[in-house]
Computed example of a mutant assay.
Amino acid sequence: MMELSGIASKVALVTGAAQGIGAAVARTLAEAGALVAAADRNTERLGTAVTKLEADGLTARGYPVDVSDSAAVDALVRLVEDEQGPVDILVNAAGVLHTGSIVELPDRHWSEVFSVNAGGVFNVSRAVARRMIPRRRGTIVTVASNAAGVPRVNMAAYAASKAASAQFTRCLGLELAGHGIRCNVVSPGSTDTPMLRTMLGEHTDPAFAVEGSLAAYRVGIPLRKLAQPSDVADAVAFLVSDQAGHITMHDIYVDGGAALHV
């Protein structure tokens, strides 16, 4: 990755940091010198992820939180700033996935996906933005999905929640631009994470996503490979760096061309 400035010594709050893309973002920002506040509701995995970062000489602290709980989020942001200093970087990477036909999707699955993927982005972004505004600085990145722009069979709840989080982040960017705060979106496609493996099934080769499926109206991945979590993390790191200082309300698709930029 290119040398990025404006990250070192900044406090970076990363949600969903226990595994997958969130963990990769936490590592990439920590390697760039950020003071990482790693947040996740899975306390066991979060502890393991933070221990690995610390073992590699990186600066990180773990903060258990359910991003769908607005009161808990407010308390989290207050604690992080009390312990580590002002949050200048926020990365919304927490997310859950429930798949299934729309007509068979249980109420609880729809509600959970929206409460985390959209509600969580709202809760954390609002809590952090309230503190960024008087400081007139900061940058926020939401990890959405290319499914937010391309319909997917059996992924309606996930796709709709990610579309909501992406549009929310653009609206947030418009409201905060006058305060010098930038807000952007990174939209991954199929990425080699535990979430993808769960979605495809235990016995399905993740490379299946590369080929696509005519029956499911998926075109596959033109670059002929899955993304790695680090690919997505590199895009996030660029957007929070000084090199992206005039970029806001933008959505970068990190999907190997799978969305065909439609």
Score class of each variant (00 low, 15 high):
Ala237Arg: 11
Val36Asp: 08
Asp192His: 10
Phe122His: 06
Ala23Glu: 09
Ala24Asp: 08
Ala233Glu: 06
Ser115Gln: 11
Leu13Tyr: 15
Trp110Phe: 10
Ser213Asp: 15
Gln84Phe: 13
Ala17His: 01
Glu44Gln: 14
Val219Asp: 04
Gly47Met: 07
Ala93Thr: 03
Lys225His: 07
Val128Arg: 13
Arg137Trp: 10
Gly95His: 01
Gly178Leu: 07
Val124Leu: 10
Ala216Arg: 15
Thr15Lys: 11
Ala24Lys: 04
Ala259Arg: 02
Ala49Val: 04
Ala177Gln: 03
Thr15Asp: 12
Ala244Thr: 11
Gly47Ala: 07
His250Arg: 06
Ala227Lys: 00
Lys225Met: 03
Ala17Leu: 03
Ala215Asp: 13
Asn123Glu: 03
Met195Tyr: 09
Arg152Phe: 06
Asn123Val: 00
Thr198Asp: 03
Ala258Cys: 04
Ala233Lys: 07
Ala55Tyr: 09
Gly6Ser: 09
Ser187Val: 00
Thr43Asp: 14
Ala163Asn: 12
Thr191Lys: 08
Thr204Trp: 02
Gly149Trp: 02
Ala237Ser: 12
Ser125Ile: 06
Glu175Lys: 05
Arg130Leu: 14
Asp231His: 07
Thr139Asn: 15
Asn154Gly: 07
Ala8Pro: 02
Ala215Leu: 14
Arg61Thr: 10
His203Arg: 07
Val87Arg: 01
Ser101Met: 11
Ser241Asp: 03
Gln19Tyr: 02
Leu13Pro: 07
Ala118Lys: 00
Ser190Leu: 03
Met132Asp: 09
Ile7Lys: 03
Asp66Tyr: 02
Ser111Ile: 09
Leu4Ser: 06
Asp234Tyr: 13
Glu54His: 03
Arg41Val: 01
Arg126His: 10
